[in-house]
């Protein structure tokens, strides 16, 4: 398998009135063609900032670390995403080879422009085609994502569609340019369970059909278990554990991943007590020293957790964890 996008040593800080705030800290991962990667973590873990960096979309006060690299492999050769500057060059990562669907479909469509006009506009921006051809493709995509009566919906505004339908239209729009990588930022969080199940099914079908890579950002481990091939767990800007979804869910190694799983109410055991992860996520202005999780960790092994940053240890070839408990004994 060839990597579609490679992220290496990504560090992102934001200049604020209170000083530099670290949002993403030394994050590396890669996604292959046709692979679905889940990115899990609570609010403030830097999931969305990481995703935005892939499209070079972060605000102007973002400062990237000097060693940060994001490489997108296209047919025309590798593209260094963070080095792109002009709007013209950026088109490839903003709707060209990479598309994104957002959490709030209502906020992501312009309210005063019809769904159809918005779809046609972006198609014509990325591909040289006539209006009529763009309309044809858009209606076809709307049909493909299961919107009934697509040619009528094409002329409607976002407010005329129900929540589930809007999310489908959003997916249709993101996929109409045939991206190689789709970033789905909490695409089902605002939806009811029955609609969520439909959208998850739709996304699985689309992966099989278009063979694209997907980054699925969510805080819901159930959704990850149902969709992803591999999963990366983030806490305070760092990836604390990464591996195949089966491995990570059945055999979690990091105390934070274990805590997340224990906090989840399970339907097959109603007597099991709910165990919260103790304490609250620290403010990004007061980043803990050493392991970022040590302030809430129930399994601290000693002072080393408070002073030294744990390095990645291999559980096996594809499963890695950053925790002192699992630190490899130096040979």
């Amino acid at each position: 398998m060839t990597a579609l996008i490679e992220v290496k040593n990504l560090t992102i800080q934001f200049r604020t009135d209170e000083g530099l705030v670290t949002a993403v800290d030394d994050v590396s991962f890669s996604i292959d063609k046709g692979q679905v990667m889940g990115l899990v973590g609570e609010s403030g873990s830097g999931k969305s900032v990481t995703a935005k960096a892939l499209m070079n979309l972060n605000a102007r006060n973002a400062v990237y670390g000097p060693e940060s690299r994001i490489t997108l492999h296209t047919e025309a050769g590798p593209v260094e995403v963070l080095k792109l500057k002009t709007a013209r060059d950026l088109k490839i990562v903003r709707g060209g080879a990479i598309s994104k669907i957002f959490q709030e479909p209502m906020a992501s469509f312009a309210p005063a422009i019809t769904i159809g006009d918005q779809m046609v506009e972006q198609l014509r921006l990325h591909a040289d085609m006539s209006k009529a051809k763009a309309k044809e493709i858009s209606v076809e995509m709307l049909d493909r994502v299961g919107i009934s009566d697509p040619s009528r919906r094409f002329g409607q505004y976002a407010f005329e569609l129900s929540g589930g339908m809007r999310q489908r239209a959003m997916i249709a729009m993101a996929l109409s340019t045939k991206p190689k990588l789709l970033i789905a930022d909490e695409p089902t969080t605002a939806l009811d369970v029955t609609i969520q199940a439909q959208v998850i099914d739709l996304m699985k079908d689309l992966v099989n059909e278009f063979h694209m890579g997907i980054i699925f950002i969510t805080h819901d481990l159930g959704v990850i278990a149902q969709t992803a091939d591999k999963v990366a767990v983030k806490y305070l800007g760092r990836i604390v554990e990464e591996g195949p979804v089966r491995e990570v869910i059945r055999n979690p190694k990091h105390p934070y991943t274990q805590g997340l799983l224990a906090a989840l109410p399970k339907l097959d055991d109603l007597d099991a007590p709910l165990t919260p992860v103790a304490g609250d996520i620290p403010s990004p202005l007061e980043r803990p020293t050493g392991c970022v999780f040590h302030t809430r960790c129930p399994k601290i092994v000693g002072d080393v957790c408070k002073t030294a940053l744990p390095h990645d240890s291999r559980v096996d070839a594809s499963h890695r964890v950053a925790c002192h408990i699992h630190a490899e004994v130096p040979a």
Binding site: A197, D201, A225, I249
Partner: peptide
Amino acid sequence: KALFSAIPSLDPDDRGRAQKLIGEI
């Protein structure tokens, strides 16, 4: 019953067994 089966299962091997509801409320 449909609501229950729509809950995403934590078991990665339990994919796609849910009986899905069609349409919306």
